Computed example of a mutant assay.
Amino acid sequence: MIYFDNSATTAIDPQVLRTFTEVSTKIMGNPSSLHSLGTTATRLLEASRRQIAELLGIKAEEVYFTSGGTEGDNWVLKGVAFEKRPYGNHIIVSSVEHPAVKNTAEWLKTQGFEVDYAPVDAQGAVDLEALKKLIRAETILISVMAVNNEVGTIQPIAALSELLKDKPTISFHVDAVQAIGKIPVADWLTSRVDFATLSAHKFHGPRGVGIVIAKSGKRLVPLLHGGGQEHNRRSTTENLAGIAATAKALRLALTDEAFKREKVAAMKEVIQNELKKHDKVVLFSQKEGFAPNILTFGIRGVRGEVVVHAFEQHDIFISTTSACSSKKNAAAGTLVAMNVANKLATSAVRLSLDSTNNMAEVEQFLTVFRQIYQELEKVSG
Rank of each mutant, 00 (worst) to 15 (best):
T70I: 07
T70W: 02
G72V: 09
G72T: 10
G72Q: 04
G72D: 03
D73F: 01
D73Q: 06
N74W: 03
N74T: 11
N74Y: 09
W75H: 15
W75T: 12
V76D: 10
K78E: 12
K78F: 02
G79R: 06
G79L: 07
V80A: 12
V80E: 02
A81F: 05
A81W: 11
F82P: 04
F82T: 02
F82N: 08
F82G: 02
F82K: 12
E83V: 04
E83K: 12
K84L: 12
K84R: 14
R85N: 05
P86I: 06
Y87D: 03
Y87N: 08
Y87A: 10
Y87W: 02
G88Q: 09
G88N: 08
G88W: 00
N89S: 13
N89Q: 09
N89P: 01
H90V: 02
I91R: 05
I91E: 04
I92S: 14
I92H: 13
I92T: 08
I92K: 11
I92R: 09
I92A: 06
V93E: 10
S94N: 11
S95E: 14
S95A: 15
S95R: 12
S95K: 13
S95Q: 15
V96L: 03
V96M: 03
E97A: 14
E97W: 02
E97Q: 04
H98C: 15
P99I: 11
P99S: 08
A100C: 12
A100H: 07
A100T: 15
V101S: 11
K102G: 09
K102M: 09
K102T: 15
N103A: 09
N103K: 11
T104H: 05
T104W: 00
A105T: 04
A105W: 02
A105K: 03
A105C: 01
A105Y: 03
A105E: 01
E106G: 00
E106F: 10
E106D: 12
W107L: 15
L108W: 00
T110I: 00
T110N: 13
T110A: 03
G112V: 01
F113C: 03
F113T: 07
F113M: 03
F113I: 13
E114N: 11
E114M: 10
E114Y: 05
V115A: 05
D116I: 00
D116N: 14
D116G: 05
D116V: 01
P119K: 06
P119H: 08
P119A: 06
P119S: 07
P119F: 03
V120K: 08
V120A: 09
V120M: 10
V120N: 11
V120P: 07
D121P: 01
A122H: 04
A122I: 04
A122F: 11
Q123Y: 14
G124R: 07
G124C: 03
G124V: 14
G124D: 09
V126S: 08
V126Y: 01
V126R: 01
L128S: 05
L128D: 06
E129T: 14
E129D: 14
A130M: 11
A130V: 07
A130C: 10
A130T: 07
L131C: 04
L131P: 11
L131D: 07
K132E: 13
K132W: 01
K132P: 01
K132H: 11
K132Q: 13
